[in-house]
Computed example of a mutant assay.
Amino acid sequence: MPGRYLAVVDRAYRGGPEVQFCDLLYLARGLHRQLGGLDVVLRGSAVTFAVDTNPLPRLRVGARYLDLPDPRRSLRALLAADSAVSVDEPALRALGLTPDRVLPGVVCRDSASLTRDWPDYEGVWFL
């Protein structure tokens, strides 16, 4: 995969209000555009980003509403931009989820196959 990079995301929660303007997957979309190709692997609790579910509700703090990032919307944008998105199937199952629950276009793979591809990338980053 010459010219492509890989981002590995392990943790789902990075703060709420703190990331409402630039979450991790928004960063991945920017890197994908600037580098000419960034694929994403979701492991650990981050596999929940790929689970197809209802949109996130708005968070109310006092009289103010915060629009928190929706990781599913960001993943759909990455997929539409030709970024490959994979989830670690054992991590998905460990959380009681099944592959039929992931967003269309997201590939479920076992842990060993995810790491076998690393030498094919220009760089592997842990975000």
Results as ranks from 00 to 15, higher is better:
M1Y: 01
M1S: 07
G3A: 07
G3Q: 02
G3D: 02
G3T: 05
R4S: 02
Y5C: 00
Y5D: 00
Y5E: 02
A7C: 05
A7K: 00
V9H: 01
D10K: 05
D10S: 12
Y13G: 10
Y13C: 07
R14L: 13
R14T: 12
R14S: 13
G15R: 10
G15K: 11
G15I: 09
G16M: 11
E18F: 10
E18N: 11
E18I: 06
E18M: 06
E18G: 05
E18Y: 11
Q20C: 11
Q20V: 10
F21D: 12
C22D: 11
D23K: 06
D23Y: 03
L24I: 13
L25V: 04
L25E: 01
L27F: 01
R29C: 06
G30C: 10
L31T: 07
H32I: 04
H32P: 00
H32L: 03
R33K: 14
Q34T: 08
Q34P: 01
G36E: 01
G37Q: 03
L38W: 02
D39F: 02
V40E: 01
V41L: 06
G44N: 08
S45G: 13
A46F: 01
A46L: 03
T48L: 10
T48S: 12
V51G: 03
V51C: 04
T53W: 04
N54L: 13
P55Y: 01
P55F: 04
R58M: 15
L59P: 10
L59Q: 15
R60E: 14
V61F: 15
G62R: 15
A63Q: 15
R64H: 15
D67T: 14
P69D: 15
P69F: 14
P71I: 07
P71D: 06
R76V: 13
A77K: 06
L78D: 04
L79A: 11
A81G: 08
A81E: 03
D82T: 12
S83R: 00
A84Y: 03
V85D: 02
V85R: 03
D88C: 13
D88I: 06
E89V: 04
E89T: 07
A91S: 14
R93G: 07
L97I: 03
P99M: 08
D100Y: 10
D100G: 10
R101D: 02
L103W: 00
L103I: 08
P104K: 15
P104A: 15
G105M: 14
G105F: 11
G105P: 12
V106S: 04
V106E: 00
V107Y: 07
S111I: 13
A112P: 09
A112F: 12
A112D: 12
S113H: 13
T115I: 11
D117Y: 08
W118A: 03
W118K: 02
P119W: 07
P119C: 08
P119T: 07
D120V: 05
D120I: 05
Y121L: 02
Y121W: 12
Y121A: 03
E122R: 00
G123V: 12
G123Y: 09
W125P: 01
L127F: 13
